[in-house]
């Protein structure tokens, strides 16, 4: 079976640093993920997530900062609330909220990033492929 495709929106203060640190340590990771660095998790548009799912990407991960540790006066709180609501919509339609991974506060570090990515790959492998037309 084909490996799932993952798109990662990583806050440049947290998730992106974790991804970078994983690279610096040369931790071996599955290759089918792409990282888009974001200024903050709150910049992640839900439309972009839906666009990605429609474009044949199996899973989206949004990596942001700790609760209370946002550079932008808790902007990540807003992001969490909004993305959790999107998970609800994904559940309603049967796409499944597990395709949208929200990780706030982890993935700061290389090994955490590795763990999150590998787990997410494993999880997505178990899901049936997503029909972009549903």
């Amino acid at each position: 079976m084909n490996q799932p495709r993952i798109l990662i929106f990583a806050c440049k203060w947290c998730g992106f640093i974790g991804a970078d640190a994983a690279g610096k340590k040369r931790i071996s990771l599955p290759s089918r993920f792409r990282v888009i660095p974001m200024e903050c998790a709150s910049l992640v548009e839900t439309d972009a997530i839906l666009r990605a799912l429609a474009g044949g990407i199996d899973g989206i991960a949004v990596l942001g900062c700790h609760i209370g540790g946002c550079r932008y006066n808790n902007a990540n709180h807003t992001a969490i609330k909004r993305l959790e609501l999107l998970q609800d919509l994904l559940d309603t339609t049967g796409i499944g909220s597990s395709r949208l991974l929200l990780s706030f506060g982890t993935a700061h570090e290389d090994y955490q990033f590795e763990e999150i990515i590998k787990n997410f790959f494993d999880e997505l492998t178990l899901l049936p492929p997503l029909d972009p037309w549903l």
Partner: peptide, 22 residues
């Protein structure tokens, strides 16, 4: 501060950060 909180809640993409637009 260009965090983008406004960008993601703007319903029709009027609000943009040019360096990171939709």
């Amino acid at each position: 501060k260009a965090c983008g909180s406004c960008v993601s809640v703007c319903p029709n993409g009027t609000m943009q950060i040019p360096e990171h637009n939709y």
